[in-house]
Amino acid sequence: MHIKLRLIIALLALLLLSAPASLWAAFGEDIEKPKPEFTPDNGDWIAKLVPRGKSSSIQIRFHMEGGTMTHLSHLEFAPGQFPKIDPKNFRSDQFMVQADTTPGGEVKLSVGSTYFTSATELWGPKAGTPLIWGTVGATNVGLPDQTNILTFTVRDGGPLDADGQVNGHITVHFGPRDSFWGYAIGTLLIRFFGVFIVLAVLEVGMIISGGVFQRLEARSKRSAPAPMAVEQTVEEEGTVTPQMAAAIALAIHLNSGAGRGGSTASSGQPEGSPWSQTGRAKLMADRMPVFDRRHHK
């Protein structure tokens, strides 16, 4: 056993020491980056994407009042460009929306999806600190069809307009933010207790079915015909002889010894009952003739 453990440790150490730095770079790579596809839909735009931590795609609908969306794309940050933004918190990607409106005018942008929850916020660059993102003050409204719509207002040349100029063109950078750790830990706890609930339901089901089956068994035993007289005689006559008792005791003794997995002589376990002693002695006596046989060459 110990050699196995040592070999495993040696193997791990070998792998650790021999991996060059270039190979270690694979660690921490953003392999779940969403790749949304945008399609216009009756004046709105729809983004279809597989968010982080999901296997199936979702849809996000973009709707604008007071202006016209001209272009939508997802925001691609250069590595280290926004060190204070953790992309993990933006599970359904960050977006850039370009729109036309009247110079100095205001547009109302709504972003809706069944993927959003009441805890989803819209975050964008804070006024005067483009490297730091914070909430854009969107209102979150839940609809009966489980869609949550987040709405916020952008003024041409205002703090949320990335070009910062009053020119009738608005560029907004933002992303729907769900706390990554909040989601990870919250859902984890729910699912851990979910396993308990599932198995507890199964337990209840088994207890109920067990009770039913035991009752059925008892009823079928009661209704079964009485045992035959011959069988009764056998049971009555089946008294335990000293030989049988010794054999049973030996079996129990050997079984206990085998379970310990070590030598019975050196294991420090008690020697056993008189029954087992008798059984052993009888067995050894029976084996003696075997050892006394002559060898044929």
Binding site: L188, L189, R191, F192, V195, F196, V198, L199, A200, L202, E203, M206, I207, G210
Partner: peptide, 16 residues
């Protein structure tokens, strides 16, 4: 002994 099912659930602690 169906109550041992709960032990099976408790042993999933490490998974989470």
């Amino acid at each position: 002994n169906p109550k041992t099912l709960i032990i099976g659930a408790g042993a999933q602690l490490g998974v989470f």
